[in-house]
Amino acid sequence: MTTNHKCIPNQGFVSLVGAGPGDPDLLTVKGYRVIQQAEVVVYDRLVSEDILALANPNAEMIYVGKKLDFHCVPQDQINQILVEKALEGKRVVRLKGGDSFIFGRGGEELETLAERSIAYEVVPGITAAAGATAYAGIPLTHRDYAQSVQFITGHVQKDGREIEWSSLAQSNNTLVFYMGLKQSSHITRQLTAHGLDADIACAIIENGTRKEQRVFRGKLSELPTMALQAQSPALIVVGNVTQLHEKLHWFKQD
């Protein structure tokens, strides 16, 4: 196993694990293995109960749940928990929904570990944009509809800068907005103001890959109204690929 080279003998080890978008069967084999080996599991709100049940029954389970506009445990305290548990010599799993490096602050947490010379590894997960759209029958790219795809956070950027909307407003592009429900009106205004057709197709995928999954479809101009019907966690997908949902949806909820 290859890890970061900074390591102190007799110290613990941290595995940053992406749990995937919701369906427990989408957890990777390596993710499954390290969760079972962990002595401490530090997990977020979006990690399913089915995945948590895979942990060693003797493991210490630490909930640091995050949801929109509320963090049960502030990020700096989460970082400190990881450091303290590793310094106790424990095998620690930091378990996040989706993929830890896509709007998951995984990089920030690893920076803290690296600064303290704590050994770590990264176990990628299926990000929500890939998993939820696949379960909704919406290909992110398609030769007839979209030649590129971009992932965007709906949250305000840390330094307050605005998104480069002009680069996003391209009709042959697929846009996937994470955490964007509350910003749906702003997203619609900005995209149309920068030239994107208000009639372009879009979708909202709620609880993607889970048995509670719901898909709302309409035009970009209708996005704010659609968002009122949906609940977090949800993805907003803007682009003509969303038209394929009716033809390609395959996921049958129980």
Rank of each mutant, 00 (worst) to 15 (best):
P74S: 12
A19W: 07
M61F: 05
G12R: 05
D199E: 13
S232Q: 06
T242A: 11
F70N: 14
I81L: 15
S15T: 05
A86P: 10
D159T: 11
L110C: 15
I35L: 15
L16N: 01
L223R: 08
H245K: 04
I138V: 09
S167V: 10
G89E: 08
K96P: 04
K66G: 03
H71N: 15
T112V: 15
I236E: 09
H249V: 12
Y63E: 12
D159C: 06
V241I: 14
L244F: 12
Q11R: 11
F216A: 09
T112G: 02
Y120C: 14
I187T: 09
N79C: 09
A227S: 13
D50S: 15
L181G: 02
R214G: 02
P224Q: 10
N172E: 10
Q80I: 00
K96V: 07
A198V: 03
Q147P: 01
N56M: 10
P233R: 09
C7H: 12
F70V: 11
G89C: 10
S184H: 07
K219F: 06
W250S: 12
E206D: 09
N173K: 15
I51A: 02
V14Q: 05
K182I: 04
S221P: 03
E212I: 02
I163L: 13
G239R: 02
E162P: 00
Y145I: 03
Q229F: 04
A59T: 00
R210P: 03
V215M: 07
G239F: 00
P139G: 10
Q75Y: 07
N173D: 06
